[in-house]
């Protein structure tokens, strides 16, 4: 069946099987491979994307449920000329190694900082605890998110 939704600011129409997840739709049909699949069961957070501003696990949502909504993936939180303040902060703090979990952390942290640019370390840990990273041990990720708050604060929730 055909569905229509907005991805990273562009309207798309795709033909999907009813059982196709949003994650597979993004990856396979729209070739947005920045969204990763680490468990396909809603546990690891690697597939996190923003749906109408909320961080959502794309492996737990069917593509048909995205009809009419605004979806933003890690590609949509990036630009060609350089890194965003959040991305810069991840790089500075070495908050990624293999990079497989990274898109999920970027989208999750972006949603958090957009809503709560004043959040403290405990709150950050709490929210990020839904995402698994096997490489970093998380300390540097929390530091990176803490450090990125300033960019969101000065701009009313926008980086």
């Amino acid at each position: 069946m055909p569905i229509r939704f907005e991805v990273n600011g562009k309207q798309v129409t795709v033909e999907v099987e009813p059982r196709l997840t949003l994650a597979d739709c993004l990856r396979q049909q729209l070739r947005l491979t920045g969204t990763h699949i680490g468990c396909d069961h809603g546990v690891c957070g690697a597939c996190t994307v923003l749906v109408d501003g909320d961080a959502v696990r794309a492996c737990l949502m069917l593509a048909v449920q995205a009809e009419g909504s605004k979806v933003v993936t890690v590609e949509g939180l990036s630009n060609d000329d350089g890194l965003t303040p959040l991305q810069k902060s991840f790089r500075k703090h070495h908050a990624l190694q293999c990079g497989f979990c990274t898109p999920g952390f970027i989208t999750t942290a972006h949603a958090l900082l957009s809503e709560e640019p004043d959040c403290d370390a405990d709150r950050i840990r709490d929210v990020l605890s839904g995402n698994i990273c096997r490489c970093t041990g998380y300390i540097s990720i929390v530091e990176a998110v803490l450090d990125a708050r300033a960019a969101y604060k000065s701009n009313g929730g926008k980086p």
Binding site: T33, E75, Q87
Partner: peptide, 21 residues
């Protein structure tokens, strides 16, 4: 030194084997 590989990973441009089709 900040890592060069980060530039692609942070922007969703890494290429893992499942990204090949």
């Amino acid at each position: 030194v900040e890592r060069r590989e980060d530039l692609r990973f942070l922007r969703g441009r890494g290429q893992y084997v499942d990204d090949l089709a």
